[in-house]
Structure formats: structure tokens, C-alpha cells
């Protein structure tokens, strides 16, 4: 199975020999590669039994839990990093979850698809329909994505909540930066990744 490119960036931000909690861990590939390459320890959390099985097959510790029910079982600063990769948009109460992540993690890493990308804007502007893109392939009535945002929205959200942004990366679909994603990230960035404390 090919490694998800957006996870490469996240793994490059994580220091060796640390403790990582990966929320919405999918098949556990991020933790698997971090274990192999950086000797990290940690756990994945997912609520889909299919992903629990896949993570177990990847020899990753995985806990079947519903993120919308909170992270009360975890102690203050018990992890070096808490990661939420491409799942922010499915969370019922993002603010509450981010606060919890910041409680249990020394730093948190979040990535999400940017709704401000020109392809989404064009669909709404020219066709007058809710955008359906490669990253967000669902029709409006049948989508798990209930809290989509743009990079600008997210920056305001961090400012309003006093979240300190340590590092960020705005990339195109191939996880590359280019002149356009640097100049006008909210229009040309597909995936946004933030490291926050």
C-alpha cells in the first residue's frame, strides 16, 4: 500500500524517541512508519472497526474510540505530539477537541483540506453547487465532512482561541509547495498542515 504523501510531512515534523497519539489513525500507517524510522511509541485512535483491524495488522497499538465523546481518559501532557490528520472536518466539536488535544499533548499537528482552494471556489461561483473535489469527494447530503474550513478561517480560529502556531505548510495535491501556494496559500493550497501549542 502506498504511503499517504500528506503523512510524510507530518512524520518529518516529529522528533525521534517521542510519544505520539494519532487521532483518526486510519490503517495506522503513520504510526507504523514512525515506529520503524524514529522509534516513537504511541497509539492510534479510530472508530471504524475496519481501521482497527488494519492497524492491528500493521502492528500498531490502536484504540477503538469515538473522538466526539472526548479524550477524557488521557492525562495532561501525556504525549509529545497529538496528531489529527485530515479529520478535523468530521469532528462534531472541533474547538473542544483541539482544547483536549492541547491538554494531553505538548504539541499538536493538524492537517485539513482547504475549502478556499480555487477549484472549490469555481464550482460554487460558476456552477452554483457545493464543491466536490478529489480531497472532498462527497455530495452535500451524504458527507461525513461537517466542519469544512479555509486556511483563513483556521488562522482566525487559532487567533481567537490563543493557539500558538509553531510551524505550517501549505501544499498542492502532490504535497509540494510552489510559488502560488506560497504567494496566495488560501487560493492555491490544497492541504494545510499546522503545528500548534
Amino acid at each position: 500500500m502506498a504511503f499517504r504523501k500528506d503523512l510524510l510531512l507530518i512524520s518529518s515534523w516529529i522528533k525521534p524517541n517521542t510519544k505520539v497519539l494519532d487521532l483518526g489513525c486510519g490503517n495506522g500507517e503513520l504510526l507504523k512508519i514512525l515506529k520503524q524510522d524514529k522509534n516513537i511509541s504511541g497509539y492510534g485512535i479510530d472508530n471504524d472497526i475496519k481501521n482497527i483491524k488494519l492497524s492491528l495488522r500493521n502492528n500498531v497499538n490502536v484504540l477503538q474510540m469515538d473522538l466526539d465523546k472526548g479524550l477524557n481518559g488521557f492525562e495532561l501532557e501525556s504525549f509529545d505530539y497529538v496528531v489529527l490528520a485530515q479529520s478535523l472536518q468530521v469532528i462534531k466539536n472541533p474547538k473542544e477537541l483541539l482544547n483536549q488535544m492541547l491538554r494531553i499533548g505538548k504539541e499538536i499537528i493538524i492537517s485539513f483540506p482547504n475549502m478556499g482552494h480555487w477549484s472549490s471556489r469555481i464550482q460554487l461561483l460558476t456552477c452554483g453547487v457545493m464543491p466536490v473535489t478529489g480531497n472532498l469527494p462527497y455530495a452535500w447530503h451524504d458527507t461525513p465532512n461537517i466542519h469544512l474550513c479555509t486556511i483563513k478561517d483556521f488562522l482566525k480560529f487559532c487567533k481567537d482561541n490563543n493557539f500558538e502556531i509553531l510551524e505550517h505548510s501549505i501544499t498542492d495535491n502532490n504535497q509540494k509547495t510552489n510559488l502560488l501556494t506560497k504567494m496566495i496559500p488560501n487560493l492555491f493550497g490544497k492541504i494545510a498542515t499546522f503545528r500548534i501549542k
Binding site: 472497526i49 492497524s55 488521557f74 492525562e75
Partner: peptide, 17 residues
């Protein structure tokens, strides 16, 4: 699970429907 997490053990948990 909580006891094992607090002691940093390798633990997985599944809740079967």
C-alpha cells in the same frame, strides 16, 4: 485500557457491536 495507558503499556482496544 486506562490503567495500561497510564503505565505506558502497548495496548489495543476494540468494542465489538
Amino acid at each position: 485500557v486506562k490503567l495500561l495507558l497510564d503505565n505506558e503499556r502497548n495496548v489495543s482496544y476494540s468494542e465489538i457491536s
